[in-house]
Computed example of a mutant assay.
Amino acid sequence: MRPEVRMTAPGSARPGGRTARVREAVRAATLAELAEKGFEGLTVEGVALRSGVHKTTVYRRWGGVEGLAADALDLASGEPWPIPDTGTIEGDLRALARLVVTSFADPEIGPVSRAFISAAVSNPPTATALHAFFAARHRQSATLVTRAVERGELPQGTDGAEVVRVAIAPLYYRMFITGEPVDETIADRAADAALAAARAAIFTT
């Protein structure tokens, strides 16, 4: 079950209509506020001021900061993810793992991503929205495993989403649990470990 977001459901408003423009303005403001202040500093008043949307409208449609964060994640989960296509599963998994590393190092994207993950630890609605976001990303990324199976690089029945999870999980563990450094070498190592398990049919269903 996704957290309640008091907002017109995506697709129910006229494309390009006022509801869509308001939602995008509020979402952009939410992300900017998260980047600057983190989840702890996120407020309806701050988002309203930055977006130009009256705070009573924000309260009515989103309910509060939990709704703002959940809706921003909901919108992001439907956006396309740049799936690597290097021609080999080894290259694709390495590129995907490196993309995670570079995303968190990005001065704009990194702080927002960290804010969402930090909030999810203690905020159940945000955690639910973040889980849905990651599930969508895993489904999209599983395409690279599907291609590998079709090329004969991996066994039939390999669970693509699980391969992706195993490839990137060590990176999140280092960044958010142990605080160890993460770079391209670590990313490649995580990808290669997931690939070795996939080739051994560990992830077949």
Results as ranks from 00 to 15, higher is better:
residue 161 A to W: 04
residue 75 L to N: 07
residue 203 F to D: 00
residue 34 L to P: 08
residue 152 G to W: 12
residue 21 R to S: 14
residue 57 T to H: 09
residue 53 V to D: 01
residue 42 L to N: 07
residue 140 Q to V: 12
residue 87 G to F: 01
residue 71 D to S: 12
residue 136 A to V: 10
residue 16 G to Q: 07
residue 62 W to G: 03
residue 38 G to M: 12
residue 2 R to S: 07
residue 5 V to R: 03
residue 80 P to Q: 11
residue 136 A to C: 11
residue 61 R to F: 14
residue 10 P to S: 12
residue 71 D to W: 00
residue 51 S to Y: 05
residue 79 E to A: 15
residue 27 R to P: 02
residue 87 G to S: 06
residue 188 D to T: 11
residue 113 S to C: 09
residue 109 I to P: 06
residue 121 V to P: 05
residue 193 A to I: 09
residue 159 D to F: 01
residue 132 A to V: 03
residue 92 D to N: 15
residue 162 E to I: 07
residue 117 I to H: 01
residue 131 H to C: 10
residue 59 Y to A: 08
residue 90 E to A: 14
residue 9 A to F: 11
residue 162 E to W: 09
residue 74 D to R: 15
residue 29 A to V: 02
residue 170 P to Q: 08
residue 97 A to V: 04
residue 149 V to I: 15
residue 126 T to W: 06
residue 138 H to W: 10
residue 133 F to D: 04
residue 8 T to D: 12
residue 172 Y to H: 05
residue 137 R to C: 14
residue 12 S to E: 15
residue 106 D to R: 12
residue 103 S to N: 14
residue 84 P to Q: 11
residue 121 V to D: 10
residue 176 F to N: 03
residue 203 F to T: 05
residue 7 M to S: 14
residue 129 A to Y: 02
residue 142 A to R: 04
residue 66 E to M: 12
residue 155 P to F: 01
residue 120 A to T: 00
residue 81 W to M: 15
residue 190 A to G: 07
residue 176 F to I: 04
residue 132 A to S: 06
residue 122 S to E: 04
